[in-house]
């Protein structure tokens, strides 16, 4: 099933991550160009893999653990490129490692095409899942940058700036990125929920799916971050804390609910 493209992407990501790792250890950014090119190659093969799978099976490749993890990895890289090309912030070093990790996880799950229940064989359900994963990818990067923000902030306050802390970007950049990721992530996530809710309602009626309720709670927290960020000047440290809290909530919903309850949101 075009697995060769998956392997190719994985290989390119691996090479890029290795170089990034060396760069972070040596606190040098000699290979940034090479890393960028390698990840771009992996990114393209990865995209071909999605299309291949989509046209082969006729369903959006997002329903199995293998597919979801691999799409998540791709989203993180996509956002990294967008940030890089729009604001020249070089975060590819951290993010390519993140991308590779999720690709690696994805490689361990069976790659067969998931057999969907009849009611899920709907393009809108696929779009709902794609949007949701993309939104979560944006949120998880916001989470990472919030942690980096707090680490850097504390380092400056207590005046201990040596070691690995020295390669973290400035507070201003981290805050700006955080803001932008929420700015894009929130509407996309909202859209995902709306599409999901509308389709779900029309297909199945109202079922009180636990994941749905949890997602709505999480959405409320992100709504408050979004509101506080856009409307008032409420930012920096508090925003970072709230972003971390919201993401933890999201993760609990994503994995915890799957493990504890019987939900049809469970990946196949």
């Amino acid at each position: 099933m075009g697995t060769i493209f998956f392997e190719l992407a994985l290989t390119f990501y691996f090479a890029a991550s290795l170089l990034s790792f060396v760069g972070i250890i040596r606190k040098k950014q000699d290979f940034d160009r090479v890393i960028l090119i390698l990840s771009l190659c992996g990114f393209i093969f990865h995209l071909i893999y999605f299309f291949f799978r989509y046209f082969k099976t006729g369903q959006v490749p997002i329903f199995s653990m293998h597919e979801a993890n691999s799409f998540f990895a791709w989203c993180i890289l996509l956002v990294t490129f967008l940030i890089y090309f729009s604001s020249k912030v070089e975060i590819i070093n951290f993010n390519i490692i993140l991308t590779f990790s999720f690709m690696f996880i994805s490689a361990f799950f069976p790659r067969n095409v998931p057999i969907l229940k009849a009611e899920l064989k709907n393009i809108w359900i696929g779009i709902h899942a794609l949007l949701a994963v993309f939104g979560i990818a944006l949120f998880s990067l916001a989470f990472v940058f919030s942690i980096l923000y707090l680490v850097q902030e504390r380092a400056i306050k207590i005046k201990k700036l040596g070691g690995p802390v020295s390669i973290i970007p400035s507070l201003e950049i981290l805050d700006k990125l955080n803001y932008r990721l929420i700015w894009w992530g929130f509407p996309i996530y909202t859209l995902a929920l709306i599409v999901g809710f509308v389709k779900y309602f029309s297909l199945l009626g109202f079922l009180w799916d636990p994941k749905e309720i949890w997602s709505f709670l999480t959405w409320l927290v992100y709504l408050s971050i979004f509101y506080l960020r856009v409307k008032s000047d409420w930012r920096k440290k508090k925003a970072a804390y709230l972003t971390i809290f919201a993401f933890l909530l999201l993760i609990v919903g994503f994995f915890g609910i799957n493990l504890l309850t019987e939900s049809f949101h469970k990946p196949l």
Binding site: A155, I156, L161, S170, L171, E172, I173, K176
Partner: peptide
């Protein structure tokens, strides 16, 4: 150098 840890531009 320290100022640049807080401010970017």
């Amino acid at each position: 150098g320290l100022i640049k840890k807080v401010f970017d531009d």
